[in-house]
Amino acid sequence: MGLKKKQLQFEEEILSDIEAEPDLPPRLRSFPLFELPSEIRLRIYHFVLFTPTRKSALQRTGNVGASAKKSKPLSPSSQRVALFLVSRKVHDEATHYFYSTQTFRVFPVQDFLKMPTLRALPRRHRPSITTIELIVGSSWTAPPRSWIVNQGLGLHDMELARTLKVFVQCDPSHPVFEGFRISKDFYTDFCGQLLQKILERLPGLVQVEFDAWPSVEKNGPLMARLLAETRHAQKKVLWGPERGWTDYDDHHKKHDNNDADAAFDALRTHPPEAIEGLANSLQTVTLKS
């Protein structure tokens, strides 16, 4: 039998085998995601966006405030990007859910949190943000020049922002800072003016939550100024979990200021020009039992 006849016979056998096979199942329909209730869709987005596959994803990169300690672990970036690329409608819903569930810092501090600050966020995502955080105390002798409230910060775009968290790392009006600070009221005035400008630019803000490190007194000069600005703006005052303040604290009760706590909290803010002096001051404080 010639080569050509063998090829024709082989093709006929293949065709007969195909014709003898049962019909293939119909192609599966696309899953009707948008026929599900919105609550279930958001739950699906949550699993995709916040389900880590590596133990390293559970490690916190920051150590200050709610933006570092309360942030959700993230799924791998490839998994998140894949979700955003499914369709425009999925992208819009998933990105809105992602940005609305995160706490974003107004300005950066020196704890190397990977989450971007407000100025670094794309403008199209600002309307989704519901919670932001201002951390004060870092660089208390020379606040960064970039810490200014202007149009570029984008606060006016955050129409859904309802909560501002304020975390106070230290109060430089404490006596242990004498000799290292510019003046007793310098940082208090700086933070008060900063908070005032932020409150003026957030159109839908409802409440301000305060928290702090151990040395910060609720009735100290810095906290008193921040509370006054908040109440003047007619915003509700809440208290964060770390310091343990409540509405029922005695405002006139003066806690024992611990000089060692104040110096230690100042060291944790890492202002380079103050570390050596404050470290020396730790040797002279009197610790009370």
Rank of each mutant, 00 (worst) to 15 (best):
Q151N: 09
R123P: 03
T101C: 10
L118W: 05
H252N: 08
F190R: 08
F190N: 08
T51P: 06
P221Q: 09
A262P: 04
I129M: 05
S56R: 03
K70H: 10
P214W: 09
D265R: 06
F167T: 09
P272V: 14
C170R: 02
H174V: 07
A262F: 10
G2I: 01
S75M: 03
R268S: 09
A142C: 06
H125N: 13
W140A: 14
G62N: 02
Q110L: 09
F180A: 15
S71R: 13
L121A: 14
A82M: 00
K6G: 01
F84L: 09
A274S: 15
P108M: 06
Y99V: 13
A279H: 11
L267H: 08
L238D: 13
N150H: 00
S289P: 10
K197A: 10
A228Y: 11
I198R: 01
W147Y: 00
T246V: 01
L155N: 00
V109G: 13
S78D: 12
S38M: 10
I40V: 11
D111M: 04
Q193E: 06
R43P: 00
L195P: 05
L238C: 15
I44D: 05
T230C: 11
E12F: 10
H125I: 14
R162L: 15
D247G: 12
G277Y: 15
L164V: 04
L155Q: 01
K184Q: 15
H270P: 12
S67V: 10
Q151D: 14
D259Q: 12
E273R: 00
F210C: 02
H96K: 11
L226E: 08
S281H: 14
Q7N: 01
I14H: 03
D111I: 02
R126T: 05
L49F: 11
P127E: 09
K184F: 06
R27Q: 07
P214V: 02
L287C: 01
Q234T: 03
W245A: 00
F186G: 11
T61D: 13
A279D: 15
V90A: 09
L36D: 03
R201K: 06
A66W: 11
A82R: 00
V237R: 00
D265I: 09
L164H: 02
S173M: 08
R27L: 08
Q193D: 10
V90L: 06
G152M: 11
D157F: 07
I135H: 03
L36M: 07
L267C: 12
H252W: 03
R181I: 10
P108G: 06
E273I: 00
L222S: 12
K235I: 04
A266I: 14
P203A: 03
R145S: 15
H251Y: 05
E39Y: 08
R43Q: 05
L33D: 05
L74N: 04
A260C: 04
P143F: 00
D247Y: 05
T117L: 06
F10A: 08
W147E: 01
V86R: 01
F180I: 15
L153M: 04
G204T: 06
R145D: 13
I44E: 05
H46M: 13
V166E: 07
P144R: 04
T269S: 14
I132M: 10
L267W: 11
R243W: 15
A262G: 04
T246K: 01
A212G: 02
L113Q: 05
S77K: 10
L3Q: 07
L155R: 01
L282A: 12
V90C: 05
W147A: 00
